[in-house]
Design a protein around this nucleic acid. Structure first.
Lengths: 241, 241
DNA sequence: TCAAAAGTGTTGTACTTACACCCATGT
DNA sequence: ACATGGGTGTAAGTACAACACTTTTGA
C-alpha cells in the first residue's frame, strides 16, 4: 500500500514487583494499599509507570523498589518474571506490565517514616487461601513469581538472598520450608547443602540461640548454580501432572 | 503536588519470535531479511508491532507466526520468553519487545509463494559461531530462547513439539542431541524416556528406515512434566559455574 | 553373512531417604 | 538431669553411566 502511513499503537509501560521475604519463618509478600482509582483501597503489588521516555525497564523496577518499599536494588536479588499485557487488565487504558521478582532478607525494620508507609507485608498463606485478594491480574503475577522462586531454590543459590549474612543452615532450611511449603529432614538437609561445593562458606563464628547446641555460621559462596540440585519433594497427595 | 497532571510516557510494543525446528538433525532458527530500515538487508528474528490498541500480546505473536512464517500457532508450542526494553535497542524510538519461543516440527515444506518468502532457516551453529549476525538485540533474545529450550527439555515434554507424530525414540534423541549439543547413549536414552510414565504412548506401527531393525512408533502422551527429569550431561570441559 | 539400527541385561557408582545416634548448650 | 536444637553414621532404595549382548532388518 504505497502512501500508507500506518503507525503502530502506543501503550503505557508499567513495572510490577513481587517482593518476597521471610518473617517469623513465614513467606511474606509486599503489597501496597492503593490510594487512587482504579481499585482504590484494594491491595496491589508495588509498581508504577516508566518515569520518562529514557528510563530502562530494569531501572524503573529498581526505582519502584526504592520508592515503594525503601529497599535498595543493589543489595537485593532482582530478576524479570515476564510481561503481562492482556487488553483490559487495567481499566485506565492499554497497559503492558513487566513484572519483576525481588528477594529481600529480613531487614533491621521496615521503613518507618518513608513514603513506603502504605506498604505492608502479607503472609503468602493469606493470599493462597484467598483471604486477601489483589487488584488487576496481580494474583496471576504473584503465583508466577512464587513458582519461579520455588523452582530457582532447587537449582540456584537464591535461598541465600532471603538471609542476612552470616546465617545458619537451619536459617536456610526455614527458607526452603517456607517457600516450598513442606517440612524437610534437618539432618539430611544439613549435609545436602554442605555437599554442594561452593554454595556455603564457613563464616568463622557460632551462634547461640538460647537452648540447644550452638550452630556454625555460613555465608553465601561463589557458586550460583547448585549441583547436585536440591529437589523439592513430590507433592504425592495432590498428584500433580 | 495538587494540580500536577503528569502522564507517563508512551512506548511502542513489539513482539519477536524465536522459532526453532530441526532440519537434517540440526537445530535451526527462522530469521527474516529486513526489507526496511533500520538494519535493512540484515537478518532479524520475525516479529512486528502490535496491530492495534486492542490486540493481545500473545495474539500478536500468533499473528506474526502466521504472517512471517506461515505457521499456525494452534499447532505449535508457543511460550513467552520475556520483555526486552533497553532504551536505544531500536533506533526508531522507545520500543519494548515481548519475545516468544516457538517450536515447530519439520513441516511438509516451507511456505512457497507466501509472504513469508523472505524467511530463511539458519542452522544454530552458524549463529553461535558468529558467522551470521542478527540485528537489534536479537542475538541476546535468541540465546535466551536457546537456553530456555535446553532447560525445558530436561523437565517437560517440549521435545515432542519438534516431532511430527508418530515418531521413533531415536527421532526424539536427535532433538535432544541437537538442542543440547551433545551425544547421548541411545540405549540409556531409550529406556530413560520410556521410564517416564505418560511421556510417550505407543502408536501401533513400526517404521522401517532402510537398514537396521524397524523402530517402534510413539506419540506424545498426556504428561507434560517429566519425572524423573532427563538431565543434560554437565559440560565438564568448559567448567560452567 | 555382514553392517546397522533397535532393543535388553547387568554392574558399579552416586545420590537420597529414613532413622539411630551422639554432641553441646540453657534451664 | 533433661529438653532442645546441632551434627554424624549408616543401611536400604533409587537412578544412572557404561558397556556387553541379543534382535531384526536391508544389502
Amino acid at each position: 500500500m504505497p502512501g500508507d502511513h500506518w503507525t503502530p499503537p502506543l501503550v503505557l509501560l508499567a513495572v510490577d514487583l513481587v517482593i518476597f521475604t521471610l518473617r517469623e519463618s513465614v513467606l511474606q509478600v509486599l503489597v501496597v494499599e492503593r490510594g487512587i482509582e482504579p481499585f482504590r483501597g484494594a491491595f496491589a503489588l508495588p509498581g508504577g509507570f516508566l518515569a520518562d521516555e529514557n528510563e530502562d525497564v530494569a531501572a524503573a523496577a529498581a526505582r519502584e523498589l526504592q520508592e515503594e518499599a525503601a529497599l535498595d536494588a543493589a543489595e537485593l536479588h532482582l530478576e524479570q518474571l515476564g510481561a503481562y499485557g492482556t487488553p483490559g487488565r487495567d481499566p485506565r487504558g492499554r497497559v503492558i506490565s513487566v513484572a519483576y521478582l525481588a528477594i529481600a532478607p529480613r531487614l533491621p525494620e521496615p521503613y518507618a517514616g518513608t513514603d513506603a508507609a502504605r506498604a505492608v507485608w502479607v503472609p503468602m498463606p493469606e493470599i493462597l487461601d484467598r483471604r486477601v485478594r489483589l487488584a488487576f491480574d496481580h494474583e496471576q503475577i504473584l503465583n508466577d513469581g512464587l513458582e519461579r522462586a520455588r523452582a530457582k531454590l532447587e537449582s540456584t543459590a537464591l535461598a541465600t538472598a532471603f538471609c542476612t549474612s552470616p546465617f545458619t543452615i537451619s536459617d536456610l532450611q526455614q527458607v526452603y520450608e517456607a517457600v516450598w511449603g513442606v517440612r524437610l529432614d534437618p539432618r539430611n538437609f544439613y549435609r545436602k547443602v554442605q555437599a554442594v561445593d561452593g554454595f556455603l562458606v564457613p563464616a568463622g563464628e557460632e551462634r547461640r540461640a538460647g537452648r540447644g547446641r550452638p550452630a556454625r555460621l555460613f555465608e553465601a559462596g561463589e557458586r550460583l548454580t547448585l549441583w547436585p540440585p536440591l529437589v523439592r519433594p513430590a507433592v504425592s497427595a495432590k498428584g500433580e501432572q
